[in-house]
Design a protein around this nucleic acid. Sequence first.
DNA 1: AAAGAGCCCAACCGCTTATCA
DNA 2: GTGATAAGCGGTTGGGCTCTT
Length: 302
Amino acid sequence: MSYLSLYKSPSQWNHLRYFSTTTSYSKPNMTTLSDTQLSATYGTQEEFAIKKGSWTEEEDSLLINYVNLHGEGHWNSLARSAGLKRTGKSCRLRWLNYLHPNVRRGNITLQEQLLILELHSRWGNRWAKIAEQLPGRTDNEIKNYWRTRVVKQAKQLKCDVNSKQFRDAVRFVWMPRLMERIQASSGNASSSYGHGQTTLCNTQAHGESSGVNPMMFSESSMISSYSSGVDVQPPSLSDASTTSSCNLMGDGSCSSESVEKGWQQWDYSDLQAFEPNHGFGDADLWTDENMWFLQQHLADDF
DNA sequence: AAAGAGCCCAACCGCTTATCA
DNA sequence: GTGATAAGCGGTTGGGCTCTT
């Protein structure tokens, strides 16, 4: 059976299109596991040889075919039944992270980056939980994004990725810049964003709680919007700055009213509408202007 | 053009949690 | 209630690719 014949729906074909152009197969390693690990799984010594390393096209085909016929789960027995000399864990990982038809391939979009930053600030390294909010993205993918992009930014700033300084930098510079780029990508670019940033600066500089989330949205609104599919553009940044200056509560919190006003109808569902590479222009993130802003208004010891 | 450095990401490892007999 | 097994999760690694010198 040809590999292609395993797929039927258009979405699966899309998946396959990427798959066929990006997967490089190489000869896998062979290794052996301990008796205790394998005694319950394989019968003879010959069958103890477990493949490790990159998956081959043939292995992928076996796994896809088997899952399509019998469904997911029971990965150890699946590996045996499908004739794969892999551990169940390996099969599960390969399926969930790469072969599953719903897996989205390609670069992390601006919206996804923004959501990851926001959710990570809430939940920390709960990659699986964060991934649940980004349909088609795996925890592995998000984890890799964090390590390769976000940790790198922290290094550039010479601070720990978990430090207050860096979290503030993400909150006050990176996320607003992402919002700016998202708006530019959506075709409603506004030149007024600098004012919005100033508003946020002033809020912080006036000694209000550092626990404030200065972004004009909340976790719940972002998540609900992400999956709602309502096709409305994000609010203009000038609107956002106005909202911020008017609605920050005395205790430094942002009123839910202001949150909902700005973001409740932002459409996250059509992630393909934006050029994915726009989000990776991180090189110009820490401009002199942004660094000055951080030094002036955030951490004294920055 | 070649070598080294750095980046990216698929896959593995070990630990924890859930399920079942 | 307990132990065995499976599944899930987060951290880490290794190899291929790209960029820089």
